[in-house]
Amino acid sequence: MASAEQLAGPSELSDAEREAVETLLFRLADDEFVLAERYTEWQVRAPTLESDLALANVAQDELGHARLWYDLLQDFGPDEPDLIWERPADEWRHSTLVERPFAEGDWADPILRSYLYDVAEELRLEALVDSSYARIRDRVGKIRGEEDYHREHAENWLERLTDDEDGRRRVQDALDRLFPYALTLFEPADEEVEARIDDLGLRTESLADMREAWLETVVPYLDGLGLSVPEDADLPAEIGRDRSHTDDWDDLREEFTRTYRELGRSEATRIMKDPDEVSE
């Protein structure tokens, strides 16, 4: 499926190649950033101090991963405010799974959501290991190492939560609610551009192949916990990849950009360097 030809650096890409790279990077970066913003809502609210710290660490990791992908988008001109703080809400490309609010006070929601997302994330990172675009390929190793911990954390908690009838019921409720949105992780942003991403070798597995591999992993695992996976679930009306979003997204974006706007900022303070910058 993928071309073996290596793509040029950012300044030498054709318009079609650049569009494909940008589309892929927005998929990656927006998912990570928005999910991290949701995870921060659980700070000091998790059932134990250990789990509170663990989810805070996961959120920090996801923000760092988003930073790595947004840095690559800055190769094409936009700066951080353009990409995050000042980008219109209807230009974001994240899956609607990551923007949905958590069920209030229900720990089963972030844990089940994390599991569904982390399995998908593992598959798409694996498909980037041999990407034809070196600047994507060079970042995958660092991210994969941290994502292994995220999935392990989610699985450990799922097994604990489904160990009794009440916990299993709460996880099932979360599964029924979230599974249709999880399917949007594998939806195209644009059919023609997604095909070009594959043809250029930017990733080595198609969205359809990754969706199938994801189902082959999550369905038997969740079945084994006594859960019933709604495999015939319809996609929600709002996909996210195609820039259609739920009303919850407007509220979340309003919240995480508030401080930036109230302080009258025109640029964002960098809290970590681009990994390409040479240390002095």
Rank of each mutant, 00 (worst) to 15 (best):
D276P: 06
M210A: 05
L202D: 06
W107L: 13
A189Y: 07
R93Q: 15
D75W: 07
E254D: 06
P275M: 07
L49H: 11
E86T: 00
E17K: 10
P101V: 09
R168A: 09
I136G: 03
E80M: 04
E205R: 10
Y70W: 02
D118H: 07
G201D: 04
A16G: 03
I197F: 04
I84T: 15
E231S: 00
G9T: 02
A108F: 02
I143Q: 12
S206M: 11
W85K: 01
S206H: 06
Y149E: 08
E255A: 05
D274T: 05
L125D: 14
V278D: 14
A8T: 11
W69C: 13
L158K: 14
S11L: 05
R27V: 15
V44A: 15
A36Q: 05
A127E: 00
E192P: 14
A182Y: 05
E255G: 03
D247A: 08
E280W: 04
G77I: 10
Y149T: 00
A182G: 05
W107F: 12
R253Y: 13
T204N: 08
P88H: 12
P81M: 07
R160D: 11
G167N: 05
L227T: 08
H94S: 13
P180I: 03
Y221L: 13
R135P: 02
P10T: 14
V129H: 07
A134Q: 10
R45V: 02
V171N: 01
R196A: 14
D176M: 10
F76C: 12
